[in-house]
Design a protein around this nucleic acid. Structure first.
Length: 229
DNA sequence: ATGACGATTTACT
DNA sequence: GTAAATCGTCATA
């Protein structure tokens, strides 16, 4: 495919330095072509990358993506676009790759997807977990209220699709956001994960999807503490 | 207009 | 381990 933004291009040897909690250096940003591939490829490519959320007051929150799920669109019974469904809620899944699809569920939770492929194919990747890197204190505040502030551990902040949305202040106001252009929500390319460190398994919470429930479309960084479940 | 249902999380036995 | 919370969305009527 395109030369830019492909997997494995980043420094693999131990010399690359990782900037922790204070976000001094900014990484190279994911451009449009990064997202224009099938959702399984994107789910793997997203692992290790940095999800960045810049809040209204300028606070920068970020985390390393460690768990994703691919949703294959019309044929995929577990996908919101199954059978060609195109509704008000899932409209963003019918946008070009690189847009955000944020939906509300269970009457209280939001989940973030990264749309893949072109507008003709309504596919996406669910971001299921990130490892917090920047703005941990702010994330803690955002999460507090549900869980007693003092009892919140780092691994409680973003180890689930709705938790990370709460921690980063992601809701339907960011539905349809273009991650390739937005200043509020985007992906930085530091830290691709080697294929040998990626495990896969069935997707979570879609038992209703018949044969599609068993397909191994969930990807995660093996052994990472922030992976859900 | 209405009823059933979640791509989840938390608290509790 | 199980169950409650809680309401926007969608299919059906």
């Amino acid at each position: 495919m395109s030369a830019k933004g492909e997997q494995g291009a980043m420094g693999m040897s131990g010399t690359s330095k990782r900037n922790k909690s204070t976000g001094g250096r900014t990484g190279e940003r994911a451009e449009r072509d990064f997202f224009l591939c099938d959702p399984v490829k994107l789910a793997r490519k997203l692992l290790g990358r940095r999800l960045v959320r810049v809040q209204a007051d300028g606070t920068r929150l970020s985390g390393r993506i460690v768990e994703t799920e691919a949703y294959l669109g019309i044929e995929d019974r577990a996908a919101h676009t199954w059978g060609g469904r195109h509704t008000e809620r899932n409209h963003s899944m019918w946008m070009e790759g690189g847009h955000a699809y944020v939906y509300f569920t269970y009457g209280m939770h939001h989940c973030l997807n990264v749309v893949s492929e072109t507008a003709e194919r309504p596919t996406a990747c669910l971001i299921r977990a990130i490892e917090p890197l920047e703005g941990l204190e702010r994330m803690k505040e955002m999460r507090a209220g549900k869980v007693a502030f003092s009892r919140l551990k780092e691994r409680d902040l973003c180890s689930g699709p709705a938790k990370l949305c709460q921690a980063m202040g992601i809701d339907r106001g960011l539905d349809g956001e273009d991650l390739a252009r937005s200043g509020r929500l985007f992906i930085e390319l530091d830290g691709a994960v080697n294929a040998s460190r990626i495990d896969r398994g069935p997707r979570v919470g879609i038992g209703y999807a018949g044969e599609w429930a068993d397909k191994p479309l969930r990807f995660f960084v093996r052994g990472n503490e922030h992976v859900s479940g």
